[in-house]
Amino acid sequence: MNIVVCVKQVPEVTDAELEINREGTEILKEDLEFDINEWDNYAVEEAVLIKEAHGGKVTVVTLGDEDCEDVLRTALAMGADEAIRIDEQGFEFSDAAGIAQGLYHAVRDVPFDLLLTGAQGSDDGWAQVGLTLAELLGISYASLVVGVEIGEGTITVHRELESNTQEKVEMPLPAALTIQTGINNPRYVSIMGIQKVRRIEIKETGSKELGLSEAEIGSQGSSVASQKLSLPPVGEGAEILTGSLDEICEKTAQIIRDKGGVM
């Protein structure tokens, strides 16, 4: 069972106060930490689990600048065997379809039975790349996967639906799956672990080597004409309680009492 996993490096924004550049086109990333996209982390773990159970090889692919080698090293330390980086030059301001084009050209000649991506990115949240890729490859797919059972030439997966329900679908291999968080418990990668895989060569490629024209990717290939970022209005709806912690808690306690929260 050979598996390709597409991963992405994203800024960690959970506890960060985000700022936007003057042009309103991007967030300021200088002070942010970068890590593997959370959904992709589960996808790598799932690939390694399947490899451990059924044999085969795991290849991780990313599209980004040199710093993005870090996510590939992380994936290698988790148990992936090979890594490919598509340089981001030419892909700047690509929409999801442009990114999918780059990945498609990089993976179409890699023999695989299963292609995994995260269900979405924590940054742009398009939730498009994995399935666009499946369609370009002309293979079966399933999104939002929370369980995988490998059969004989087939795969059965559980898809997460709304209201705590799931559905089970079966399809022939090769297939593409987009992985939902919670499907497994991604293993912890130590600095030692990353040290151990530092000699594995990362294969590099780029838009030119992949034969992509400017019209297909980047801002020219994107269906988006312009994007203007802004900070959402803060506290527009909520009355923000102020004062010392003690004062805030006293006010809060009073509100709870007033609103009938204490029997």
Binding site: L18, G125, S223
Partner: peptide, 21 residues
């Protein structure tokens, strides 16, 4: 005839106003 959309990115921390081609 040009489509404009509002999306929320970075887990809802940023609003993105897009104009499509």
């Amino acid at each position: 005839g040009r489509l404009g959309v509002l999306r929320q990115i970075y887990g809802g921390k940023i609003n993105a106003q897009l104009v499509m081609k």
